[in-house]
Computed example of a mutant assay.
Amino acid sequence: MDYSIEHGKVKEAIEKAQCTGASPQDVANCIVEQLKAAGYTPSKVQLLDANVDPVEKPEQTRFIRIEANKPGDKNVHIFTFAVLRPGGQFKPLWLQSAVVER
């Protein structure tokens, strides 16, 4: 399967949804919903700080990392976003996606 094409479609869907929110968790929830709509089952959502460690406070979030599975596919799909805060609203910026083959 060509994961780059599949992940490209996911990226487009997330960008079209314009996931913004008052908190990083709002943004993560929006991304999770877009992944579900694309047929993924998110299994792990992490809010990470600038050192890529789990955040102590949500406002410290600089990255969102989501692991997801797809029915019939044993592989784990990982989606990573930077979190920007223009004008007081949190907004994701697609950084990368990866597949851990199992």
Rank of each mutant, 00 (worst) to 15 (best):
V32D: 06
S97Y: 10
P24H: 09
V100E: 14
D53W: 04
A28C: 14
P54L: 06
Q46V: 00
N69S: 08
C30F: 12
V83Y: 00
Q60Y: 06
V32G: 00
R85L: 11
T80P: 05
L48Q: 05
A68G: 04
P58Y: 08
E101V: 09
G8I: 10
F79V: 02
N29R: 13
L48S: 05
K44S: 12
Q46M: 04
L48M: 08
A28E: 14
K57Y: 03
G87T: 01
V45M: 07
W94R: 01
P92W: 04
W94Q: 03
K91F: 11
P92Q: 02
P58D: 12
V76F: 00
Q60R: 04
Q46L: 07
M1S: 09
M1C: 03
V83S: 00
L47G: 02
Q96P: 00
Y40M: 13
V76E: 07
A98S: 11
K36W: 08
D73N: 11
E12V: 15
Y40R: 04
G72I: 05
V55E: 02
A28I: 12
A82N: 10
E67V: 01
G88N: 07
V52G: 00
V99K: 13
T20E: 15
A98Y: 04
L95D: 08
T41H: 03
S43D: 09
G39S: 13
K16P: 00
Q60D: 15
G39F: 14
H7A: 12
P54S: 07
L93W: 07
Q96Y: 04
V32F: 03
P71Y: 03
A68D: 02
R102W: 06
D49Q: 10
A17E: 10
R65V: 02
K11H: 10
Y40K: 08
L84P: 02
V45T: 15
A68S: 09
A68L: 05
V27F: 06
N75W: 01
Y3L: 14
R65Q: 13
K36T: 12
A13K: 15
A37Y: 06
K36G: 11
Q89D: 13
K57N: 08
V45Q: 12
A82G: 09
P54G: 04
I5E: 14
A28R: 11
K11F: 12
H77N: 07
R62P: 01
C19F: 11
C19H: 09
K11Y: 09
N75M: 01
K16V: 04
A38S: 13
A17K: 13
A28P: 13
I31K: 08
N29V: 10
A22M: 11
A98Q: 06
G72P: 02
S43W: 00
K74M: 07
C19A: 13
D73A: 02
C19P: 10
D26L: 06
I78Q: 03
I78S: 03
V55T: 07
L47M: 12
Q25D: 15
I66A: 01
C19D: 07
Y40S: 10
P54W: 07
E101G: 05
S43A: 09
M1N: 05
E101W: 09
K44A: 11
R85S: 11
A13M: 15
T20S: 15
V45A: 04
Q46A: 07
E15D: 14
M1I: 06
G88Q: 06
